[in-house]
Design a protein around this nucleic acid. Structure first.
Lengths: 330, 330
DNA sequence: TTGTCATTTGACAACGTTGTCAGATATAAC
DNA sequence: GTTATATCTGACAACGTTGTCAAATGACAA
């Protein structure tokens, strides 16, 4: 900047004014400064600028996702980017792998870089550690799951209602023995979904048979093994509800392997690319990750723009997509 | 930091030393300083630190991908993160949407934030604009596609060889009329893949019939429409080669819709989640995005660690996965 | 005690920028 | 030509940190 000022024969303050598009610089000097910046290939130093600036904003936010490569998370990521980038804000992203420690380490790394805001898909079970970040002026919004021991905005899916809808659908198709395959029970949404399953069965006066329930499944392989074991047991279920997309894939793979994919009904939580092309197509309770991400990012920026209203929880609805697997009759 | 120094009754320089783990601070003072930092909830300001620091490193890199939500790109992203985070380096990510202008704007935004390095999946067709970034000390590695008019490291897939392998496989299964469905011809890799198709046909003494070729397809819908039109023409192909994952999906969807999915052979470039569960399973030429990302990130950090050797191109091999669709006979 | 040397500590400037405020210049009115 | 006013411009300090270097302290031997 000093060099630009020297070449344009003005003070560095005038260069600063031009760079920031402040009013009150004569066209003549503006021209000279822009010419000099071009010639010297000057690039504004944003960290230095935000250091000096009164608001201290870095025009940067941090996003903690379960795994940036997971389809649900990466769609969230993209819709956050689509809100942030037009505002001149860049996005740091990191994966927690469902590990509370990694979540904290990422948040700490983001905070050291002075991000203006954080969007977190929680892995940890105690978010009180975020108090100091917020006190330091960092806005925080949770996605997919609500925070624990910490009051903050969140944007979540109506998990229980979605699962109830799917289970109801299976019951309406004549099923009574409906198996449930769920994700790690430490994950709140996994628990909520399981509770939705139980609640709907209770409402429909169907007794929950614990022999038909398999929880704490993580990944396609585990789900596949659990499904195989469940449907080959002595009193197998006639239908399955799977509580997460990889579990749905594992379950379908097992059913396919056993030649049962056109016999045992299946409804899965979360949509899956290509689910419509399988035989039968997989009936799912679809979330809307793009809507969740967009809502979270917009909420975050409202907070950064000074909205001080009480923290709010936005619930994004699910949608059932019937494709065949959920309409198989016992 | 000043407050911590005051509370610990030392100079801020001593606090700086403790924070950076420099040697030569007595255990007594170290204890006092850490206690004071904890009590005041002090958080090191990395941008300010890197401003003053002699190496000027921000411990930050920028990644420009086609779309962070695209499965190939998000896997790249994840494997880059896995190399960066253990080194204390955080990752900015952005989507170019295959638009050279967006790529340049993202790079410029990253540069303003003084990233130490860039990993770019190129959309632009002239990367000479990166000269000034490199002169400013920014390391640059290209992934998936090589740079244009710019000498830099790159990590790419052997596209032509992969396609030739797939086309060869179809010919070995008795096909002569093999259709080709390709992505935007402005994309280098799309062009390379098409050239691989032509080269293999030539090698096998099969004349390229332009009526069997559809290029510039972007997205599932366009691919689906093109496939439908192609296979219902008067002299349809007996096999298809699809040059990209969404095109493969669109083609399969069209074949399914016409009841031809067990008649017309199909080999696709890029693996697809669930491809093994379709009927028939889809035979693909699989890339290894995780290996590409890892190699690119490691190369970037070698450059940042001072490796000054001439720029290199790393070629990552493809692998054919036969699942049924590519083994259908005419 | 004194002198020597190694170790530990702190004062100060600087990184690249912007906020503050005073000074310079141009414009208009008399 | 003078004054009043509006418009531009620049000198300087400060943001939170670290590099430099000199000063203070401690350990040890004579």
């Amino acid at each position: 900047m000093r060099e630009v000022a020297a070449l344009a024969k003005v003070s560095i303050k005038t260069v600063s004014r031009v760079v920031n598009g402040e009013s009150g610089v004569s066209p003549r000097l503006t021209r000279r400064v822009t010419a000099a910046s071009e010639r010297l290939n000057y690039r504004h130093n944003l960290p230095a600028s935000s250091l000096r600036r009164s608001d201290g904003r870095s025009a940067t936010i941090g996003v903690v996702l379960e795994d940036v490569a997971n389809p649900f998370a990466s769609t969230l990521h993209r819709s956050i980017e689509d809100v942030a980038v037009p505002r001149g804000v860049l996005v740091f992203a990191g994966s927690s792998d469902e590990d509370g420690d990694r979540e904290r380490r990422l948040v700490s790394a983001f905070a050291s870089r002075r991000v203006d805001g954080l969007i977190i898909q929680p892995a940890s079970h105690d978010h009180s550690y975020l108090l100091s970040e917020r006190k330091a002026g960092c806005a925080i919004v949770f996605v997919d799951r609500p925070p624990k021991f910490f009051d903050a905005d969140s944007v979540v899916t109506d998990n229980a209602a979605g699962v109830r809808r799917g289970v109801h659908h299976l019951i309406a198709n004549g099923h009574r023995r409906i198996g449930y395959l769920g994700d790690l029970h430490t994950i709140d949404t996994a628990r909520e979904r399981y509770e939705g399953y139980c609640a709907e069965l209770a409402e429909q006066k169907v007794v929950v048979d614990e022999k038909l329930v398999r929880l704490d499944l993580r990944g396609i392989e585990k789900a596949e093994a659990a499904t195989r074991e469940l449907v080959t047991s002595s009193r197998p279920p006639t239908a399955l509800f799977t509580g997460q997309n990889f579990i749905t894939i594992g379950a379908f793979r097992a059913l396919r392997g056993l030649g049962l994919h056109k016999k045992v009904a299946l409804v899965g939580f979360d949509d899956i690319l290509l689910a419509d092309l399988l035989e039968p197509g997989i009936t799912v309770i679809a979330q809307d990750p793009a809507a969740i991400g967009r809502a979270a990012a917009e909420l975050l920026f409202r907070r950064l723009d000074g909205d001080k209203s009480p923290s709010q929880t936005t619930v994004v609805r699910t949608r059932m997509i019937a494709r065949g697997s959920g309409e198989l009759r016992p």
